[in-house]
């Protein structure tokens, strides 16, 4: 039953790895880009967490840096995956015609969908690992559970990459990317990233609790601060389901776009 809903999972198996290889080749030329992506959350952590943190004081019994670091990890995982799966993918789809070349080989549309999402995930995992090292070094991880923050960030990356890719298949021109910004900026700012969710009135708080990045922030903050609760499993489930829905849309849409 599940296989019928998500046919691409068995379909895009071993061959999807070839597409990941292709991206590795491309990025061997532009390794600086990958490397530099690690600095953006670091700047935010130093500037906002420590610089602005002096003005903020403590939040819910945490220093501001301890409070904001897990949220920055979550948003970095989301932003990295979104960037790769929207701008980069659109370029490959519309201009470089990368996928048209791929489709004249034994690889199929499902391989492309799985391969691209997997690549976004691998990149995101590298960033998360780097950022977690910094979090540990700066003493911002309060519990050994924090080790699980990396796989948690992978879940966020998976959901964001799958949803991002599926949105890209609907995009017609560069200007449409303003919509990506219109969605990701409020998520970045309002998902209990910079201030606790208790700051909202009840109605808005419930709304925020349903958004994906909030679930991600909640999950990672729970792990790094050691506040382990059953709700964290709900966070995981939410992100997995979202990612699978995204993947299903992607393979259907790519079939429509590429196999005309």
């Amino acid at each position: 039953m599940l296989l019928r809903l998500f046919p691409i999972i068995p379909f895009g198996s071993r061959r999807a790895g070839r597409l990941v290889e292709r991206n590795v080749w491309v990025y061997r030329h532009g390794w600086l880009i990958i490397f530099s992506g690690f600095f953006e959350p670091l700047f935010y952590l130093l500037g906002i967490g420590f610089g602005l943190g002096k003005l903020v004081g403590s939040v819910n019994g945490l220093t501001y840096a301890q409070f904001v670091a897990p949220a920055l990890l979550a948003t970095a995982a989301m932003n990295g995956a979104i960037y790769d799966s929207t701008f980069n993918m659109f370029f490959k789809l519309k201009f470089a015609k990368t996928y048209d070349a791929v489709l004249s080989t034994p690889l199929g549309v499902g391989d492309i969908a799985v391969g691209e999402v997997a690549w976004a995930l691998i990149r995101g995992t590298l960033y998360s690992l780097g950022f977690m090292v910094v979090i540990f070094m700066l003493g911002l991880a309060l519990s050994p559970w924090a080790l699980l923050a990396v796989p948690a960030a992978m879940l966020i990356g998976f959901a964001a990459a799958a949803i991002g890719t599926s949105c890209t298949t609907f995009i017609r021109k560069w200007q449409d990317f303003d919509m990506v910004f219109v969605v990701t900026l409020p998520l970045f700012l309002f998902s209990a990233t910079f201030f606790p969710i208790t700051a909202y009135p009840d109605a808005i708080r419930i709304l925020v609790e349903f958004t994906p990045l909030y679930r991600g922030v909640h999950l990672i903050r729970g792990l790094t601060t050691g506040q382990i609760e059953p709700m964290l499993l709900v966070d995981c489930l939410y992100l997995i389901v979202l990612g699978l829905i995204g993947l299903a849309i992607v393979s259907r849409r790519l079939k429509f776009l590429l196999l005309k």
């Binding site: 290889e21 080749w25 491309v26 990368t98 070349a101 004249s104 080989t105 034994p106």
Partner: peptide, 27 residues
């Protein structure tokens, strides 16, 4: 072997890398 109307080469890769990765697509 498919030669499309418009070249669909990987502009970011070198000449030989284009062939290598394409070979990988064929296992």
């Amino acid at each position: 072997g498919v030669i499309p109307q418009q070249d669909t080469l990987d502009m970011e890769l070198t000449v030989q890398e284009n062939l290598w990765i394409y070979a990988r697509y064929f296992d």
